[in-house]
Amino acid sequence: MREDWAQLMCAGLDGDTAAYHRLLSELAPVLRRVAQRMLARAGQGSGEIEDVVQETLLAIHLKRQTWDRSTPLMPWVWAITRHKALDVLRRQGRRAEVPLDALDSVLEEVAAPEPAEAGLAERDVARLTQSLSDRERAVVEAVYLSGASAREAGQRLAMSEGAVRVALHRALKRLAAAYGGAKP
């Protein structure tokens, strides 16, 4: 499975949305288990797990060009996960210390991902979409609610396909900023 992921990422970087969707969907439950374990090690409850998962997915997406195709994908993913877990812990006012060995022991256990806890994945983070403009929210919702392609969403919103892509990209950057880290 892991070998596949690098291939899926390459395909995604080349614009294959289906492959990219599959990669992120398969990564999410693994990230969730890793995040759960990392936060538990740091003495943090489960409330922030989905924050870590979503921020990590966003960071993987926004920073996907920092992955060097000639290197393995997963060390890159874990470094991002750890960075985002630290970020969340820091915002919780904890001493941000996630020991690396905690990560390593977690990684051994997640080789075969289990079905995720449904409740967590459904955790709503509506507060984040509040940071978007109406137009950006409309684009994000059109794309994800109906799984519409950029072209379909554009037709629905009377925007060009290019404008939808740009708005979507901006919205995702703003979302990442709303989580706390960087500026938009």
């Binding site: 949305t17 990219y20 992120l24 999410a28 994945a121 709503d124 509506a126 994800y144």
Partner: peptide
């Protein structure tokens, strides 16, 4: 937004924008 929805939105934005880091 739920995680699965976020993934849909991210996937729709698959192709990178602009020049590479290098």
């Amino acid at each position: 937004m739920k995680t699965d929805d976020l993934i849909l939105a991210l996937a729709a934005d698959a192709r990178p924008h602009g020049p590479s880091l290098v």
